[in-house]
Nucleic acid binder design. Structure first.
Lengths: 195, 195
DNA sequence: GGAATATACTCATCGAGTGAGTAGCTGGAG
DNA sequence: CTCCAGCTACTCACTCGATGAGTATATTCC
């Protein structure tokens, strides 16, 4: 299909950076890094140099292209623009379901929601439901694994599995709160109550 | 204190490998990799070559030393042994509290419990309690962050924070199950109940 | 006898991530 | 009015994480 295998849990904010370019006018690395830390700072953590490295790779792969723009007094900017290939990859990533690992949901899925809200807001509720179903399936697998793990020799693998099960259950609870219509979001529903 | 800054959430199984050497006789990379995947496979995932790379780095840092042992018919083994420096670092890591991030607990903390159970079983309950307190403190910080995050412009940072809060709460619940005395572990307490 | 699996390790390559550096401009405190 | 902090904008060097393929012999099982 595409040159690259799949969208299974990218571990760098490359699609977030593509997304800023897909959802707005061409801009430069410094600004993209600022927006990443301002608007998705609880989701992604990339240093400035890391951001530039990712952008260089995206350009090497032909997903963005750049032109250097001199400025009167400030340093020159490398203005970045999405290529058609870049836009296609981004849209494909946005449409594909997130892998149901916990990290993937915390990071990729929230990013997808963020850009869906800006580009295709009508798709968001369906995305949440797809994730819920995927997470339920993974939860079931984990419980099967747990049942197949002997209590004595594998005590610590069991502990790890039990923790993952609890975490995934928490994810599903959280996903259920994401389906609440976002119209009057701040009025009635408080943050998740905790004792 | 030591040459390296701190034990804040190592992201490779280096201490697990040191631990196998600390808790047993000298052995070789192939065996260490097998034990890592068999006994802590739900905690760490390292390819074989990754394991060898880590061991090479540990040797370069002087934490292990190696001697090549020829065998009659099978490939030669590089027999690995903990140096005094390596043992000291491992014991220091075992005694230091795990950083309270979710990943750190799922990975580092379970590993510490695993080796504590083998080397200093009397310390385990205290370790759990220390983690619970640390996690409660982090939870409090997250809730403070959430309260300080505006609902409108920062909607997705809020979502991420809410998820982290739920996950950390799940971690604390799980930690509380770890304090149950491990004598009659398999009899009464089932796995975490899930609807 | 031939395929699969086990033993034991090596190498090349790429991406993640850090930290420091460069260098001119702007705004406010003293 | 001057100096320093901080902003704008990007670069470089380096280490570690991670994958995948390769090497070469030995046993096991059908």
């Amino acid at each position: 299909m595409s040159q690259h295998t799949a969208y299974t849990a990218s571990r760098s904010p490359e699609f977030a950076l593509l997304g800023f370019l897909a959802a707005g006018p061409p801009t430069h690395g410094y600004d993209l890094h600022r927006r990443l830390t301002d608007e998705l700072g609880q989701v992604w953590h990339a240093s400035q140099s890391q951001t530039y490295a990712i952008l260089a790779r995206l350009e090497a792969r032909g997903l963005v292209c750049s032109t250097v723009v001199e400025q009167a007094r400030l340093p020159a900017r490398r203005l970045l623009e999405l290529t058609p290939a870049g836009r296609a990859q981004f849209e494909a990533w946005l449409a594909a379901p997130t892998g149901a690992s916990i990290r993937a949901i915390r990071v990729d899925f929230i990013t997808r929601l963020y850009f869906a809200a800006r580009l295709h807001p009508e798709l968001a509720p369906g995305m949440v439901q797809v994730e819920i179903n995927a997470a339920r399936a993974v939860l079931h697998d984990l419980q099967t694994d747990l049942a197949a793990t002997p209590a004595v020799e594998q005590r610590f693998n069991r502990l790890a599995l039990e923790l993952r099960i609890r975490q995934l259950s928490a994810v599903i609870d959280w996903l259920n709160t994401c389906t609440i219509p976002e119209g009057d979001s701040h009025a009635t529903s408080g943050p998740p109550a905790l004792p």
